[in-house]
Nucleic acid binder design. Structure first.
Length: 287
DNA sequence: GCGATTTGACCGCG
DNA sequence: CGCGGTCAAATCGC
């Protein structure tokens, strides 16, 4: 995947200048397509890295979630705490990160890692051109999930064809289960017309950010059930313009299944989970 | 109105 | 004392 990403980036650098010389709209459309391809591969890489991390932790005597959280944070002052003083309460919560137990990832699309995050801070860091953003798991409150991450851009993309690159550092481990996720092993491919570009997941990036693709998507929902090896199109969408006979179609082979999926734009903002079939593929080295 | 983001203040650590 | 991480009130936006 990394190799593919590198090659696409190189191809982009070759093709785009030529198209821009020719002038016209195609250059813009092609640029958006390249961005979308890079978005997809970066998300896949991020997901695989996280999965790899979770696997390696599973084999390395995983501590109970709460113990992990407690080990990760060091609290210097513990106040016996009748809570009479708001400052004292805040001090009790003050913690400092340990460099251990963190995973660093470099990616042009820092938000597509399969989890939902809430931004809680932004800070200018010494000797850095861009601020660092701080995120915690959306489900921290409800499910006491201790996962956090920081995102910092380290490569300027202004005036170049290179995509902006971000350093993403993950701390802690997700103990949450995203809402509305059934135990069912079906893969749900869901996209919707939000007007928001596919490249701007958490809304952190400015509209001018080069990672934002302006390709609009109106496909609303495709459900793929690997158990029954069927796919049904749940609502009409642009997908049907490309393949009108797919509506309510039954797809009986995996090749057809993936053909359907290939027409469907990936929703990179949605939580993704690898289903049982995916785990089999992983186990057998197909990915 | 409510959830998410922004931003200045606060705090611990080195 | 400076830096980085977190908090929480203010603000935004749907």
């Amino acid at each position: 995947m990394a190799r593919e990403q590198s090659l696409v980036t190189q191809l982009r650098a070759v093709v785009l200048p030529a198209l821009q010389l020719a002038g016209g709209d195609p250059a813009e459309v092609v640029a958006q397509m390249f961005d979308s391809i890079l978005d997809c591969s970066a998300k896949a890489i991020a997901e695989l890295k996280l999965l790899q991390l979770e696997h390696s932790r599973a084999y390395d005597a995983p501590p109970p979630p709460q113990a992990m959280v407690d080990d990760k944070w060091r609290v210097k002052k513990i106040f016996s705490g009748d809570g009479e003083n708001a400052k004292a309460n805040r001090q009790q919560r003050k913690r400092r990160r340990s460099a251990d137990d963190s995973v660093t990832l470099e990616t042009p699309v820092p938000h597509y890692d399969g989890h939902q995050w809430r931004k809680y801070g932004q800070k200018l860091i010494n000797n850095a051109n861009h601020p660092r953003s701080y995120y915690k798991c959306t489900y921290k409150q409800e499910q006491d999930c201790g996962a956090t991450k920081t995102v910092q851009q380290y490569q300027d993309c202004a005036g170049t064809d290179e995509p902006a690159m971000y350093t993403v550092v993950y701390f802690g481990q997700h103990t949450c289960k995203p809402a509305g996720n059934d135990a069912d092993a079906a893969v749900v491919i869901k996209t919707e017309s939000t007007g928001r570009s596919s490249g701007c997941g958490a809304g952190e990036l400015s509209p001018s950010d080069s990672q934002c693709s302006n390709i609009s998507v109106t496909c609303t929902s495709v459900v793929v059930d690997h158990h029954q090896r069927t796919a049904s199109i749940e609502s009409s969408c642009k997908l049907l313009d490309m393949a009108p006979d797919l509506e309510n179609a039954e797809v009986n082979t995996y090749d057809q299944l993936y053909d359907v999926a290939a027409f469907s734009p990936l929703d990179l903002d949605t939580d993704w989970a690898i289903d049982a079939h995916g785990h089999d593929l992983l186990k057998n080295g197909y990915w």
